[in-house]
Every structure is written in structure tokens, then in C-alpha cells.
Nucleic acid binder design. Structure first.
Lengths: 342, 342
DNA sequence: TCAGAAAATTTACGCGCGTCAAGAAATTAT
DNA sequence: ATAATTTCTTGACGCGCGTAAATTTTCTGA
């Protein structure tokens, strides 16, 4: 922390008494130099706190240490939470995560992919917008950059997909709801991504298998303000004769949160007690779902597994340097989380 | 989109029939070249879609186009929303926003500041952790990089601070609560940042001015899972004789969301109707506050003004190149949002 | 003790671009 | 038309680092 300021690696090499190429080697991998020289470098490092110029490094390295992370909507705590875990894993592995949110807009997603391309990341973890994604742009990007899709699948794109198994989780909660009360209706909005479709289809299939008629109620809405859509749609449906049965399975938790708000506004008691009028369940175990009133019964996505596996698979791909097996799709099972709402 | 792939600016200059320095000039500022040459460059740009190497650019430019954004906890939709607006403004101004979240951890905040330093950003918008921030590191960083603090102030650090005026907003809601029912207690957790302290002090002052005794209830909790803290603390307080009065003003909305959940769990009806047992109010107008059951009465922070002003001030500082007046502190007024909870 | 392996050093080049100076060309003013 | 001005071109240097080849030093093990 004393002495003259170090301006570049050459100067630092001089003051530490080591040649520049060796110092360079050290910064690329501290274990690649002899222990004694490593000690000397790190001693000098404490006295002069020098850091190699990030831009100069990345200009010359064939592989950067940058990992891109792209999510469709960061204001959704689901993604915020996933991102938190992914970032941590990347940092632990010595990579540098760079985070982008498309904020629900196609143009922004495309811009982000452009930006990412010039960042030359070793790999990218991409949760695409879904239906709003520009398929051609995403496809082009995936050809250029090793990419792992997560959360929302787009057929054949990227080297792998990590998500949750809607075909397993939806029947799980449907069976639970049927077992403990009247069979559920399905409450959805126009699908923003494949998960929404898969969930509805899984609902219909599960209901038919159980011998119930599947009622699907779709309300209007086109952006990522799911709670608002659930609230407005819920007010309309509930104020207009209500659902076909007194149990509602929502396409996702945020929609369910809106629907609970709607029920409360109309003084319809929500829950599984005899005095309650409607049961509401969701899907995802959104970070806030345990704090709704009543707490939301839902399917817990395995945040930890999804984020961990996504990063692992990406690193495998990076190490295999492209020549990997066929596209892998890993789906994690959801777990039923029983709370007071259903 | 045809022809051979362009590898660098020289090649692109060749195919566009312009010299490389002029092309370089164009990319730094398209208006700095004659209209006719600009047209020619942009024509070539369409045929070859070339983009200058980001790393090479920033290595040589004295000022990058990078703007750093640091928030303490991205999984809090308040910050996610602010960030969304800030990013948009930066992009519109031709800057490149890079987002970081400290995820509530001091070590991470320090790491981020380190990372940012090597990114050589023209400026940084920093919402510090607050009490958990490493004051020395933040101070050192602010000396090196033009920084605007927002949301959470640290005395004297950075070139400016943009936030909201707790001394105005808290009395506003205290007066409202006193006017419409019993005077409120103040529900808080150990303060994570100066706002929490300012709010409590403003509460005490307002209550004394109105001739009421100020009751402050502090519950335990040390991290950023405010809802959980509010829920657990709320269960403890409500199950243990309850608050001193039947109105509770929470230090922030997330705490209030937890408290509402606690009240619901204990079957204590929340709201301002005669049949309700407790009124609960918050502060911030968190994105989810309108979807609680009942919807949360709160103080709306002016998201748009805060994010806009933060960016504006930063750009002013950047243009003034350091030699600016004294540190500026801009506080925006909060607005009372009356909903059903109080 | 000495050969062979391992690691460090020296020397050198290149990455892609910013930037500068000098001169040529194009534009505008007179 | 010519002079003054703006804009472009040419040529060259440097940024800070990765990386490679050839050489020297240091370490290892029998």
C-alpha cells in the first residue's frame, strides 16, 4: 500500500523481482507457478495492490473469464433469486458474471445479445423471454456463443436446457387439490413462455385422467405485471359468477397473488378452512408466496438445483470446448408446499 | 450481411472505402464526421455488421462509456424497479450500464467496488448496503471514481446523494393515521441503513409534536429477508399482548408485508373497517404493496424522480469532469397512498 | 554428484483500437 | 476564380497484456 503507484504489469514485475511473463502466468492461474515465486508475488501484491487491466487481459486471451447471465424480467424475485445463486457459483469458480435483464422487451433482449457478443463471454446462461423472444436472433447467438438455456425452453436452441418438470409438478398439485376438496379450475393469462402452455396442458391431462372436467379460465394481459393481471382478471371472474368450482390452480404464484388480492377485495375468504369460500394455489414457490394472506399453497421449484445445474452444465460445456454430446435437457421435479390457501 | 467476415476496424475501413482513423472517429461520435462519409460508413455497416472490439476500445479511451450500478439487494423489487429505470436512461444516453448486487454482503460489496475499479467506468450509481458497508472501502472508491449515492446516504461520500425525504414523508403518514384512528406504534428491525434511523426519529418527533407518546417496537433480525423478520417479530409481538395501540406504522413495506402475514396467521383482521382489529401501514410503496390482502397503505417513494435525478446528476458530474460545486443532496417528497390496510 | 525435469527468464511479436501530426482533398467563403 | 476552412488520409506510435520460442536457472531423485 506504499511506494509509487504501479501502472502496469511490467512495473509490478520489477518491484516483485519476477519477470513479467511469470507474473502474467500467476494471474491466469496462481497454481501454475512455483510456490516460492507465488509467495513473492503475493507479498508484493500486498504492498502495492496492483490489478491487471481488465480490458488488456480480455483483448488477448482467447477465452475470457466472463459469463453472461440474461433473464427476462429482473423485477421478478424468482429471477432475482436464481441470479443470486448463479452469480455466487460463478464467482466461486473464478469467473466473472455479468447480469442483464430484458425487462420484458424483445428489443432489449436483442440488444443484450449484441452486447454479450462483444463481451466475448466463455459462456452464457440465458432465460429467454419466451414467446416474445426473437427466435432468429437467439438462434444466431446460440450458434456463436456457448449457451445454456434455463427456466424457459426454446426447442433445440443452446447446448442444454435446465428447468422444472411441469408434467410432474402440475399433476402433483392437481391430485392434492382433488384429494382434499373440489377439483380445481386453471387460472391463466396469455402465455409468455412455454412453461405456461405446458402447465395448462398438464392440468388438462391430469384432470381427464382423474375423471374431472378441466376448466381453463384465461384472462387478458400481455406484459410481466402478473399480479396486476391476476388482480384485474380475478375481479372480473369473481365478480361475474365466479369460477366453475371453488378451487383455483393458478399458472404461477404471481398470478395467484393477484387473485388472492381480488378475492380479498370482494370479501371472499380464501383458504382451506370450512369457513373459507375459495381455495387458491399457485406454482413456483415465489419468494413472497409464504407471506401472502393466507400463505400460498404451491409447487416449489428447486431454485438451488436449477441454478447449480445450469452453472455446472455450462462449465462442462466450456471445458469440453464445444465438442459435446447431444443437447441435454434436465428437468427438476417440483415439490408440493402445503400452506393455508389451499 | 454478406461478404467475408470483418475481423477488425482496418478491414471494415477498407470495405467501406474510408480510412481507419475516420471510421474510429465515427464510432466515437457519428456526428463528428461529414454527412456524406457517415452515410457511406452506415451503408457498409449494413452489409457487414461489424462492431468495434469492446476491450480494445476501452483499453485506450481515457473515458469509457461504462456506467456502474450497484444495489445492496437485487431480490428486493424496489431496487429491481429503480435499476430498470436507471438502465433504460443510461442506454438512451448512449452509455453502457453494468449492474451489480451486493446481495446484502459486505464482502461482495467490496468485491464489486474492486471489479468496478478495473472496469474504469465514467461514473457509478451506488446504493450502498448502509450500516454493513465498509466505510473505508466505499470512501476510497468514491475518491477514485465519480460516484452518486442513492437511496441510502453515507455522510460526505460521493459527489451527490439522491433519496427521499423521510423527515417529510413520515410525519405525513403519522398525521394521517392519527387523524383517522388511534395513533400508531412504530414497528422496526435493527436498522440496515440510515433511512431506518431517520424514519424512527421522524416518527418520534412527529408523535411528540402531536402530543402522543411514541411507542417504538423493535424486533430481531439482521439480514435482508425483511418479510420473514416482520412475520416472526409480528407473531411474537401480536401473540404477546400485542402493540400498545391498534395501529402500526412499519419502517418499510416489506416489514409490513410480514406483519400482515403474522396478523392473518393469528386471525387478527387487518384494515380500517370497524370490524378490523389492527391497522398496518408501511413506507416505500413497494411494487407488491398494492397486492397484499388488504392492500397496504403506505408512502410512495417517487421511483421515477429518484432514478431520473440520479442519472441526471451523474451525467452532469461526468460532463463537469470532476470540478463541480459542493456535494449535492436531493431529497424527494413521498406521497401518501391510502389503501385498505390503514 | 550429476543428469533430467521443471520452472523461470529473456526476447519478441501481436491484439484492436485511440490518437496524433502532417499533408492531401474537399468544401465553403470571398 | 482563389483563399480560407473543414474534413479526410497516411503513417506511425502506444496502450497493457497474452503468448510463444529459446535459453538459463532451479529443483528433483537416484
Amino acid at each position: 500500500m506504499d511506494g509509487p503507484k504501479i501502472r502496469n504489469m511490467q512495473e509490478f514485475a520489477s518491484v516483485s523481482g519476477i519477470s513479467r511473463p511469470t507474473v502474467s502466468k500467476y494471474f491466469n492461474d496462481p497454481n501454475s507457478v512455483r510456490q516460492s515465486t507465488r509467495t513473492r508475488i503475493e507479498a508484493a501484491l500486498e504492498r502495492y495492490d496492483y490489478r491487471p487491466n481488465l480490458y488488456a487481459i480480455n483483448q488477448n486471451r482467447r477465452l475470457t473469464k466472463t459469463v453472461g447471465i440474461v433473464v427476462p424480467f429482473l423485477a421478478d424475485p424468482f429471477f432475482a433469486e436464481i441470479v443470486r445463486r448463479i452469480e455466487r457459483r460463478c464467482l466461486d469458480e473464478g469467473f466473472w458474471p455479468v447480469l442483464f435483464s430484458a425487462h420484458g422487451e424483445q428489443d432489449l433482449e436483442n440488444d443484450i445479445l449484441d452486447c454479450l457478443r462483444s463481451l466475448k463471454p466463455v459462456g452464457v446462461l440465458l432465460a429467454p423471454l419466451g414467446r416474445r423472444s426473437d427466435r432468429r436472433e437467439v438462434e444466431k447467438f446460440c450458434r456463436d456463443v456457448p449457451t445454456v438455456l434455463f427456466d424457459s425452453n426454446i426447442d433445440g436452441m443452446g447446448k442444454a436446457f435446465i428447468g422444472s418438470d411441469n408434467a410432474q409438478s402440475v399433476p402433483l398439485i392437481v391430485e392434492y387439490l382433488c384429494r382434499t376438496g373440489s377439483p380445481p379450475c386453471f387460472f391463466e393469462m396469455p402465455p409468455v413462455n412455454p412453461n405456461a402452455n405446458k402447465r395448462r396442458n398438464a392440468f388438462v391431462a391430469a384432470m381427464e385422467r382423474l375423471g374431472h372436467e378441466p376448466h381453463v379460465v384465461r384472462v387478458a394481459g400481455g406484459d410481466w405485471s402478473f399480479e396486476q393481471i391476476g388482480l384485474e382478471g380475478g375481479l372480473k371472474v369473481l365478480g361475474n359468477g365466479g369460477f366453475a368450482t371453488d378451487t383455483v390452480l393458478c399458472s404461477n404464484d404471481r398470478l395467484a397473488i393477484g387473485l388472492i388480492a381480488a378475492a380479498h377485495a370482494l370479501k371472499i375468504p380464501v383458504g382451506r378452512e370450512p369457513t373459507d369460500a375459495i381455495r387458491i394455489a399457485g406454482h413456483d414457490d415465489h419468494p413472497f408466496s409464504r407471506f401472502t394472506a393466507p400463505p400460498l399453497t404451491t409447487i416449489a421449484q428447486d431454485y438451488d438445483a436449477i441454478s447449480r445445474k445450469s452453472v455446472d452444465v455450462l462449465f462442462e460445456i466450456i471445458e469440453a470446448e464445444g465438442d459435446l454430446g447431444p443437447r441435454e435437457a434436465v428437468l427438476f421435479e417440483g415439490k408440493l408446499v402445503m400452506r393455508a390457501s389451499a
